[in-house]
């Protein structure tokens, strides 16, 4: 663990959906921690459980889903907190922004009124002071002409401006943790860059921790300190972003990196593809869930579930039976026959 004690610590988080009397597991026990001022990225493809994990942190899972395990925010165990207790923390100590801000904004309230409401929900301040703080927040998220935007409605704003408003609302009570669930997936690439640069700057200024949920490894490389790679509801690899991209160990991580088209990669050529597709919830194979798509899988991979184990000097961990074979030194052993 790092010198800074984590503001958010998740242990053995399990999420399952009720189906009649039975349960169908979607997240099978993942753990991570985030320190103040740090960005942890949770990366994976659709259906891997990354967004469910985010929702569980804020107690926002759908009614038929249940989370078990431990989520510790600062000094409180927050998993399973209900009603008023959770509402007090949500927004004040942990806040979330979503892929589509329009679903989270109230269409019949002006932008300013919504931020004022968010402030007064948690802080007993006068209306005038809340208005002043809301105006300052709009300027802080670099919304041009904040006085004019203050009295506009969400539909009058572009997608990028709406996401800035969401960030302003999330910052309203200076949370310790910001959970950002695919915050730029619906935005154009130039706007995406600006929103993520803004979140980086705010994190540095305020010391809040950021949990960035994304499918885009490029965003992870540019904005995260540490990474958790998920596949089919499990963590398959975790470590510092620098180490993960320099020496990816899990075949899935390696596959994701290789499958990504890169600018300036030379002549037109085929990409390294990962065959097959992500298993559906009810059809996760036994053993390693990635084995059917894995070029390195052997018979044991189809039988034994690999657990996260330490790999490398620092905090790198990988869940793969074969990672050591894949990381054998480059040169082959000296042949005695020669």
């Amino acid at each position: 663990m790092s010198a800074d004690s984590p503001v958010l610590q998740v242990e053995d988080l399990r999420i399952a959906f009720r189906e009649g009397a039975a349960e169908r597991a979607a997240v099978h026990g993942i753990g991570f921690s985030v320190a103040a001022g740090e960005t942890l990225a949770i990366v994976g493809e659709s259906g891997c459980g990354k967004s469910l994990t985010a929702f569980a942190l804020l107690g926002l899972l759908p009614g038929n889903a249940r989370a078990r395990g431990r989520v510790r925010l600062e000094d409180h165990d927050i998993l399973g907190l209900q009603g008023e207790a959770m509402r007090r923390l949500r927004g004040a100590r942990i806040a979330m922004i979503f892929q589509e801000p329009m679903t989270a904004l109230n269409p019949v309230l002006t932008v300013g009124a919504q931020i004022v409401e968010a402030i007064r929900e948690h802080d007993a301040v006068s209306a005038a002071e809340a208005r002043a703080r809301a105006g300052a927040l709009l300027a802080r998220v670099r919304i041009p002409d904040p006085e004019r935007r203050f009295v506009e409605y969400p539909h009058q704003l572009s997608g990028g401006m709406r996401q800035r408003v969401m960030i302003a609302m999330a910052l309203a009570c200076s949370p310790a943790v910001l959970v950002a669930d695919e915050p730029t997936t619906a935005l154009d690439v130039t706007v995406q860059a600006e929103i993520l640069d803004l979140i980086d700057d705010l994190r540095r200024e305020t010391g809040m921790a950021v949990v960035l949920i994304t499918h885009d490894l490029g965003l992870v490389a540019e904005h995260a300190d540490r990474v958790l790679v998920m596949y089919a509801g499990r963590a398959v690899e975790t470590g510092s972003a620098a180490s993960l991209f320099a020496t990816p160990r899990h075949p899935y991580t390696r596959g994701l990196i290789a499958a990504r088209p890169r600018i300036g990669s030379g002549a037109r050529q085929r990409l390294a593809e990962i065959p097959g597709q992500v298993p559906s919830l009810g059809a996760v194979p036994r053993g390693c869930a990635f084995a059917p798509r894995c070029p390195a899988a052997g018979a044991p991979c189809r039988e034994t579930l690999p657990l996260l184990e330490a790999a490398g000097a620092a905090a790198e961990r990988v869940a793969c039976l074969r990672w050591k074979d894949l990381h054998a030194p480059e040169q082959s052993p000296v042949s005695l026959d020669a």
Binding site: A221, H223, A241, I257
Partner: peptide, 21 residues
């Protein structure tokens, strides 16, 4: 603006652009 694995932790001289639409 294109996210890149090669540009780890470094902004590619991206300025702030208020006209993001």
């Amino acid at each position: 603006a294109v996210p890149s694995l090669e540009r780890r932790g470094r902004r590619a001289g991206r300025g702030i652009d208020h006209h993001d639409t």
